[in-house]
Amino acid sequence: MRQQVEADPAAPQAASGPRGVRWFPRMLALAFVIVVVDQLTKFWAVSTLSDGRTLRVLGDLLSLRLLYNPGAAFSIGTDHTWLFAIIAAIAVLAIIWFAWRVRSRAWGIAFGLVLGGATTHLLDRLFRQPGFARGHVVDFIDYAGFFVGNVADVCLVLGGALIALLYLRGVALDGRRRDG
């Protein structure tokens, strides 16, 4: 005679349930798409905007112009490009470590966005001119003269904002809300 065991409502759902799904492969796929799109748009920007021209998209609010950024956001730390390569590498490894435990679609998307953005910045630092671990990031999206960025920057900001929102709402990596 079989004994029927009731599921503990406090226990995590089985791997087949929505919270049991591992989002890691999907997060990696999203990050890969971001890297490809970012690198393709940078290739386009270099081939189209290298002559110094500016293409207006939305008047003075949004335009496209090519810059090579050796520093971080707003060209901070331009003499420490090698340091940003190390920081990007550590960030990529840390994101992968945390993302392995993700069981939530929202966290998977957030980590995928940040991983894609950080990975493509790392690739720029490692493989673009002027040399290994000193490469400059290609920026070409000009936001009304306030700053110039790229697709990876957009993904990093969106992913970071989503991580902050999930944290502030008390959503754990498995998708459950924390008490308190």
Results as ranks from 00 to 15, higher is better:
R2T: 15
R2M: 14
Q3A: 14
V5G: 09
A7E: 15
P12N: 11
P12Y: 00
A14C: 04
G17A: 02
R22P: 06
P25D: 01
M27P: 00
L30M: 10
L30V: 13
L30S: 06
F32C: 12
F32Q: 03
F32S: 11
V35E: 07
D38F: 00
L40Q: 15
L40I: 13
K42W: 02
W44F: 04
W44N: 09
S50F: 12
R53N: 11
T54K: 14
T54M: 11
L55H: 13
R56T: 15
L58M: 15
D60Q: 13
S63V: 06
L67Y: 14
L67R: 13
Y68T: 04
P70T: 09
G71S: 03
A72L: 08
A73L: 10
S75Q: 03
S75T: 08
S75C: 07
G77E: 05
H80M: 13
W82L: 04
F84Q: 04
A89Q: 06
A89N: 02
A91I: 12
L93R: 05
W100I: 00
R101G: 07
V102I: 12
R103V: 01
R103I: 00
L113F: 14
V114T: 11
G117Y: 05
T119N: 05
T119F: 03
T120V: 05
H121M: 10
H121G: 12
L122Q: 06
L122S: 06
D124A: 12
R125E: 01
L126H: 07
L126I: 14
Q129V: 11
G135L: 06
V138F: 09
V138W: 04
F140K: 08
F140N: 01
I141Y: 01
Y143E: 01
A144Q: 03
F146M: 12
F146T: 11
V148W: 10
N150L: 04
N150Q: 01
V151R: 00
V151I: 00
A152H: 09
V154M: 15
C155K: 00
L156C: 08
V157C: 12
V157R: 00
G159T: 08
L162Y: 03
I163E: 00
A164L: 15
L165C: 00
R178H: 12
D179W: 08
G180M: 06
